[in-house]
Amino acid sequence: MHFSIRYLTEYRYGSPVSDNLNALRVRPATTSSQRCDEFHTRIDPEARVTRHLDYFGTEVLEFGIPTGHDHLTIDVRARVVTSAPPEPPHGPWSALTSDAYVEAAGEFLLPWQDQPPIAGIEELEASIRTAADPLAALRLLVELVPDTFEYRRGATYVGSTVSDLLAAGAGVCQDFVHLSLVLLRRHGIAARYVSGYLWAAPEDEGSDSLEVDTHAWLEALLPGVDGRGEPVWVGVDPTNRRFAGETHVKIGHGRFYADIPPVKGVYRGGSTSTLGANVQMSRLDPQAGARA
């Protein structure tokens, strides 16, 4: 699929602020099933933007506005072509302990936010254990999480933990992903947080432009077919009960949200800011029709 994406963020400050430093992780990645053709950013007030790749390979755009200003606009535009990823491989549970798997998994196997172990998810953990193999576990997971928790904006906030999700019984995609990561890692399945954009058009509706939000899903590392062959990272979207496909435009990944926030900034000045952020996605190849 062929998309154009416009990610527009606007802050207004009650009184002028200064030394406004921001880091953006918004550029669609180029991967085996995705290619970013065009990418532009515009900052108002004007600022010099520097780029580098972070530890996880995500492109980071950084800028700073030293002098007083009362608003900040970050306007990002991109064009992306995606293709459907290959079918995920079937491999046995036993393959998760192979050297090849552990090496490929690296730090995404470590129980990052699960230490000390989070209480109250033993049942979920046990259900996943009933799956026949890791791929089946992923299929189970994408139903189990949205069955157990309600998707509700405002139930949690950007710094919420898995425990907050458990307490509220509801959350947003970020929380669903954090919980899923914990569950998968507990079973020895390496899993990482993915930030990106989602073409969220209903299947039967052929609209070619949508207002969406930045989205979060995850990638789990599945052992190769029958435990042989290279392990493969597979995108899984527990918020939308499916595997990630052509509709998912990946920005990058990390251990958890804090490794890959779309916009992170600090400014000097005590005034409160109001934030408006939206992502406008358009299909550039509408003849293909929208499908999940």
Binding site: Y11, V17, N22, V158, G159, P261, V263, K264, G265, V266, Y267, R268, G269, G270, S271, T272, S273, L275
Partner: peptide
């Protein structure tokens, strides 16, 4: 002594 730094995430 009031020089706040606010964080945006």
């Amino acid at each position: 002594g009031e020089r706040g730094i606010a964080m945006v995430v």
